[in-house]
């Protein structure tokens, strides 16, 4: 079954300039889907449109059958979203923030108690939940953002560069959680720049560059098409990066 369906989606911020041009994607249930691309390629624009933070200029996006522009509330109940930069209420305590998010998703007392305890232990944040969020480090904010997104047990996880800021142990746990979520028939859609994660956990990937989809398929297929190079090399090749030809001798010239 298709969980996220993106059909002829375009997004323009100003007349004639498109951040994303006519992309169509189907993400199925039980899939860990990696969304890759260089900076400014249109990843965050696509993700923000999927979660209803941006209106598509053209095309449609549905999440579990709910059109994100026409039935945004129903669609948002299906989603657990972690933005690229954690947006939190700084002056609240961590636990107050989590309770607020749980209220918004109508999570029962029992479920929120269980999930807050387990998730905060997994991310080693339990003792910090009584502190106000403005005292948190970047990594702690990212962890809180993750816990709040997963608390209502959403069917679809949409994570925009979720690993950024996490310590290696938390990053490892998150990868395991993502895999476990997909094994239960649910969906994870995430963007990342870390090719190692893509290789390890993604069932399928899409590569976007300058607003256009360049590839959609499995990691194996992608690598096979490019003569079994490393994921990093494949990515640079697909996105036509000139990074390998760069000469950095000027760095030590003086």
């Amino acid at each position: 079954m298709r969980v996220i369906s993106i059909h002829d989606f375009s997004k323009s911020y100003s007349k004639g300039t498109f951040a994303v041009k006519n992309i169509s994607l189907e993400i199925r249930d039980g899939e860990v889907f990696g969304f890759l691309g260089p900076n400014g390629a249109g990843k965050s624009t696509t993700i923000k449109s999927i979660v209803g933070l941006l209106n598509p200029t053209n095309g449609s996006i549905t999440v579990n059958g709910h059109d994100i522009t026409k039935a945004s509330v129903q669609a948002k109940y299906q989603i657990g979203y972690v933005p690229d930069e954690a947006v939190l209420m700084e002056k609240l305590k961590g636990i107050e923030y989590l309770n607020f998010i749980a209220d918004m998703y109508q999570v029962s007392n029992r479920q929120r108690r269980e999930r807050i305890t387990k998730l905060s232990e997994a991310f080693k944040l339990n003792s910090d939940l009584v502190k106000t969020i403005d005292t948190y480090s970047h990594g702690m904010r990212q962890k809180l953002s993750l816990i709040s997104a997963l608390m209502h047990n959403p069917a679809v996880w949409i994570l925009d560069e979720p690993i950024v800021g996490l310590d290696p142990e938390s990053a490892f746990r998150l990868k395991k959680m993502m895999k476990s979520h997909s094994e239960k028939g649910k969906t994870v859609f995430f963007s990342t720049h870390v090719m190692e994660i893509v290789e390890k956990i993604c069932d399928r990937v899409a590569i976007i560059s300058k607003g256009e989809l360049l590839f959609v398929g499995t990691v194996e297929k992608l690598k096979k098409n490019r003569g079994d190079s490393t994921m990093e090399e494949v990515f640079l090749e697909v996105t036509k990066s000139e990074a390998e030809q760069d000469d950095f001798s000027y760095l030590d010239a003086y």
Binding site: V51, Q74, K76, V87, M104
Partner: peptide, 8 residues
């Protein structure tokens, strides 16, 4: 930014 991402 946060409120608009919630089911409100």
């Amino acid at each position: 930014n946060l409120l608009m991402s919630l089911p409100l």
